[in-house]
Amino acid sequence: MLSCRELVEFLMDYCDGELPPEQREYFEKHLACCPPCVAYMKTYQQAICLGKSACKDEEQKPPKMPEELVRAIMAARQAK
């Protein structure tokens, strides 16, 4: 039986569908009887989704370009 430590070690490969069928079966047998590992896997995947969403959201509402930086870039362009 796979341990929790082993499950967490191979979690990314499992989520990416990169585990061979036999290992995948061991993995799923463990998940079927270990609620903390199910919770770990779900929260691991949710952390990835949250990271993507928070950064995309920031890109849709970008910060204002500082005026002095605009001026510096235009001056550097002139100088080249």
Partner: peptide, 25 residues
């Protein structure tokens, strides 16, 4: 990184996030 006991179990068992965390986003 997660910690494990000598027998391989999670030292602090994980629990799910309320609303999957996504509603909170």
């Amino acid at each position: 990184l997660p910690k494990f006991l000598d027998d391989g179990h999670q030292a602090t068992p994980a629990s799910e996030w309320r609303d999957g965390g996504l509603a909170a986003l």
